[in-house]
Write a protein that binds this DNA or RNA. Structure first.
Lengths: 216, 216
DNA sequence: CTCAGTGCAAACGTTTTGCATGTTT
DNA sequence: AAACATGCAAAACGTTTGCACTGAG
């Protein structure tokens, strides 16, 4: 009935790495870091173990804004603040948390087991490089994706990739260019079609020879 | 720069349908309903329009627990309660919301633009048909995993025990916490190992002094 | 006549699964 | 031997995009 949880080498490294993170890493951020120590580990293993270890109560799976799941080694009750731009998540300590309670009659018959509080805003790093983000700018992509030249954004992405030794993910590109992830993936798609970048690994991109010559 | 937003038949129906929903539908729930009126509509159109209309401020896109995005026609400021089992989302009105504020010095340099509060638990329908969905139960592992913190589930169990005068069984705990009995026994094992609970009688558990201090 | 909006299919990024192989008890 | 984990590939999932076309302004 009870299952035994074995402490394998992989699990040890995963746990180790998550505890080293000041942030609240996503599964693939962790995967990237872990791969350096355990090059043959599989992304599935990381996912599986994060799930299993959060079920076992060794770590916490965060229910938080944003696309990807995030994990937290700090099991103390605390809440989070979320950057709407780069999706970074920081801890906050809410002293008066106990004052937040559900007004009677408001629980709709629910059996309430807890409460999350999440502040959101723009993190210091993002507000520093506060580029105006022009409402619905994604349209710019559509109109320019067909041409053979480079749009400003495409050039930014390509230049960022030219600086990387290894293939890197769209999040890295976004960070290096101050573009939004959505915009990045749009540019990446266009650049791939032009043959200026390639994707040696799933979700990772590198500049091609054609791409390099297009830059000059 | 300003784009014209055309009110097409599809958009009208989508808006119509979302306003009819008492709940907070996901894109594909809406799609299913809309298809009955507009059989040729595409899921992509639904997604596109939900996105566009929420950008335009006609509806709200919810940042909420769960896998899928949810949409809300009610533009008033309100919070939500979330069923951990069926992922249903209901509205709650938090009268004392204004009391929740970020302690100074806790904002980590963020430019805070708001705060979400989300209660979670089990909705009446789910707790009625307290279906056991065969959740995996795992034991905390033997060696290195002995952190001193508490997972959400462990905290629930401990809090339930703190309220009891006498030692009580795992079924009682399960009832008090909305956890499944299987999960309870898993948490109990982990808590015992941490010294936070004891078992004065076979299959009965009580909180220890250590456990009480761990709670605060 | 235009250009925003559509349906469709295909792709995307993230997560989960099936399966053969490996490792612990 | 039984139970648990792993790596890999492929699928599943919710969502977004490219494209050729339609239709509102």
């Amino acid at each position: 009935m009870q299952k035994l949880l074995r402490m394998t080498h992989q699990r040890e490294i995963i746990l180790d790495e998550i505890k080293k993170c000041a942030t609240h890493p996503t599964a693939d951020e962790l995967y990237d870091r872990i791969k350096k120590k355990l090059p043959r580990i599989s992304l599935a293993t990381v996912y599986r173990n994060l799930e299993i270890m959060s079920e076992a109560g060794l770590i916490n799976k965060l229910e938080i804004s944003g696309r990807q799941k995030r994990f937290d080694w700090d099991l103390h009750q605390h809440d989070h603040i979320y950057c709407m731009q780069c999706h970074r998540v920081d801890n906050i300590d809410l002293a008066d948390k106990k004052d937040i309670s559900l007004p009677t009659g408001e629980n709709h018959g629910y059996l309430v087991s807890g409460c999350r509080v999440e502040f959101y805003g723009i993190c210091p790093k993002c507000s520093a490089q506060s580029k105006k983000k022009g409402e619905r700018e994604k349209m710019a992509c559509k109109s320019k994706c067909g041409t053979k030249g480079l749009s400003d954004k495409q050039r930014q992405v390509l230049e960022a990739l030219a600086k990387c030794k290894e293939a890197c993910g769209s999040k890295d590109i976004a960070a290096a260019t101050s573009l939004e992830p959505k915009q990045v993936s749009c540019q990446v798609t266009a650049l791939k079609k032009k043959g200026f970048i390639e994707s040696p690994i799933r979700c990772k991109y590198a500049i091609t020879g054609d791409g390099k010559s297009a830059l000059s």
